[in-house]
Write a protein that binds this DNA or RNA. Structure first.
Lengths: 145, 145
DNA sequence: TATTGTTATACTCTATAACTATA
DNA sequence: TATAGTTATAGAGTATAACAATA
C-alpha cells in the first residue's frame, strides 16, 4: 500500500458539504461533456452558442453574451472560432451592430450538437436514482433563483 | 428598451438542460463562496485544504492532492501560499516525503473558515425549497458515484 | 451619453512534460 | 522501478481597462 503515511484515503472528503459536492459534480460533468463534444472539434462554450442560436434564432454578440454570461471581450475569440469553421456569419444590422446567424454548415453542426447533448443530458439524469431525479432540476433552479 | 434586436431576453436560456443548470449553479456558488472567503485572504482551494487537514490531520502533499483532485504540480504554489501566511508547515517524514501540518495560526484560520463555510452551506441549502432539499445531496452523490 | 464590438492584458485553474532525489 | 516533490510551461476560462465608431 502506497501513499498512506497518515491513514486510509477515503473517496470523498468534505462529503457533508453540498457546495463541495456541487463543484465536483459540475466539474466532472463538464469534463465528460467536453470529451463528447471533442469529436466535433467544438468546445462546450462553442456548442452552447450554437444551441442558443438554434433556440432563439439570430442574435447580436452582446445578446448572446448576456444570455450566457460571457463578457463581450470574451465573445470575440469565441465567435471567431465559430466563424473560422464557417458555422456562423456576422451580418451587419446597422453600422454599429451585427447579427450572428447560423450558416448551413452551422445548422448541420447544431444537429450533431443536439444529438450529443440530448444523449448526454439523458445519461446525466439517468445516473440519479428515480426517487431523487425529479427534484434535481427544481433544486438547481432554486439555487439560481 | 435596449439590446433586443431579436426579441426579449429570457432569464435562463437552455433551461431544460440539467447539465447547463448544474454548471451555472456551481459557478454562482463558487463565486459567492470566494467572495465570503476573501475577507480571510484565502482562495476556495486554500480554504478547502485547511478544512481537509482539520478533518484528517497531517497529510502529505500528494495525499491532499489525491483527496481533492489537485495535480501535484499545482499543489506546490497552493501550499506555498498557505506557508507564506504561516498557516501550515512542511515537516520532513523521511528524506523524500514531508508532512503538511496546521500551525497554531493555521488552526485559528481554520476556525474562521469553518464558521464561514458552515454558514455558507446552510444558506445554500436554505435556498432550496423543503420538498426538494433532502434530495439534493443524494443526487449529487449519485452523479459522483 | 450609452452601447457595440474590439484589442490588449492579466489572473486563476488546470494540465503535461521533465527533472531530482529517494523509497 | 515507482513515488514525492518540484519547475517550467501551456491551454482554457474569465476579468478589467481602454478605445473607436455609432445609436
Amino acid at each position: 500500500m502506497v501513499n498512506s503515511f497518515f491513514g486510509e484515503i477515503v473517496p470523498l472528503p468534505l462529503s457533508t458539504l453540498p457546495g463541495f459536492l456541487l463543484r465536483r459534480a459540475a466539474s466532472a460533468m463538464m469534463a465528460e461533456l467536453a470529451e463528447r463534444l471533442a469529436v466535433l472539434d467544438l468546445r462546450v462554450s462553442d456548442a452552447t452558442v450554437l444551441l442558443l442560436l438554434g433556440e432563439r434564432g439570430a442574435m447580436t454578440s452582446s445578446e448572446i453574451g448576456k444570455a450566457l454570461e460571457i463578457k463581450s471581450a470574451n465573445m470575440v475569440p469565441l465567435l471567431n472560432r465559430l466563424a473560422a469553421v464557417s458555422a456562423i456569419e456576422r451580418r451587419p444590422i446597422d453600422r454599429k451592430s451585427q447579427a450572428i446567424v447560423l450558416t448551413a454548415s452551422g445548422r448541420a453542426a447544431l444537429l450533431q450538437v443536439q444529438e450529443i447533448t440530448s444523449k448526454f443530458e439523458d445519461d446525466l439524469l439517468g445516473r440519479i436514482p428515480h426517487s431523487h431525479r425529479e427534484h434535481f432540476v427544481p433544486a438547481l433552479l432554486a439555487l439560481l433563483g
